[in-house]
Design a protein around this nucleic acid. Structure first.
Lengths: 146, 146
DNA sequence: AACTATTGCAATTTATAAAAACACATGATA
DNA sequence: TATCATGTGTTTTTATAAATTGCAATAGTT
């Protein structure tokens, strides 16, 4: 399995759209920036639209954020593109004849849920605005050295 | 299933070894409980030994925890088998010609680091002892209904 | 010493989820 | 009408994890 980068790519899309609404915002143009294909971009955008994070209409390349960046968290985006897929995975294929194994995984699930909650709590505190701010800082750093 | 389950399986191994040191603790026996193969079990055990979490000698099937369960955290095990692999992955394949994309991922990395830290902090609070306790609770629940 | 069972590694193969690629009906715009 | 875009499937490719195989090295046993 490849490492999943949907959240990263979804953030990429959101920031890209917000940065300069005057430029070409077609899925093809966005795909060029991510270096992926337009279809994948549209799939992610569809997920973001479904969760009410993004606006867009068929036929015209003019997507826009459905809320201000300060009202969109990383958790919103995570949920939109990953659903309830967890960060850590239980081994659900242990030997059912071995009750020991089943109960170990059952016990583990309690703790994985806590870790997930901890990560999601932090995600909920990070907004698109924060990321855009940090983005601008990095851009400045680069231009400063030129 | 091809989601990574190394952490889950490593915990499984550690708990299994601790539960009953008198039983057969060969990699084959442990593999049977996880329903996997002995080689995979030995690979995980090698990682755990390398990090000083597990004892064992070549030739004899008698592994043992290197520390008491209360002194082994989920983070220790995560580090042993996953190294510094993060829970969330940046898209490192964005178009380098598009400075926008590079900087977005750079900005994101700061926040991913925070999320990782938050998750790891929680992992560091969970010990093998906790998991074993919870395991026993689940075992009791099952036997109570019989 | 010979035999058996096991670990420790390395190499290879297989399975599977993610991303890439493709196809096309539908809607917008000029 | 012609062109370009989206929305939404489906199919194909690719990357990683796990499974499998093989065997030298080590320990215990007879």
């Amino acid at each position: 399995m490849k490492y999943p980068t949907r959240v990263s790519d979804a953030v990429h899309i959101m920031v890209f759209i917000h940065l300069d609404p005057t430029q070409d915002l077609s899925s093809t143009a966005i795909a060029y920036s991510i270096k992926t294909n337009p279809s994948y971009v549209r799939q992610l955008m569809a997920a973001l639209k479904k969760e009410g994070l993004l606006n867009g209409t068929r036929g015209q390349a003019a997507p826009s954020l459905a809320r201000v960046p300060s009202a969109i968290t990383l958790l919103d985006i995570y949920r939109a593109v990953e659903g309830d897929k967890p960060l850590l995975h239980l081994d659900t294929h242990t030997n059912p004849e071995c009750g020991v194994g089943v109960n170990i995984q059952l016990a583990l699930s309690d703790y994985y849920a806590e870790i997930q909650k901890s990560a999601e709590k932090r995600m909920a505190e990070i907004t698109l605005e924060n990321i855009i701010e940090t983005y601008h800082q990095y851009v400045q750093k680069v231009t400063a050295t030129h």
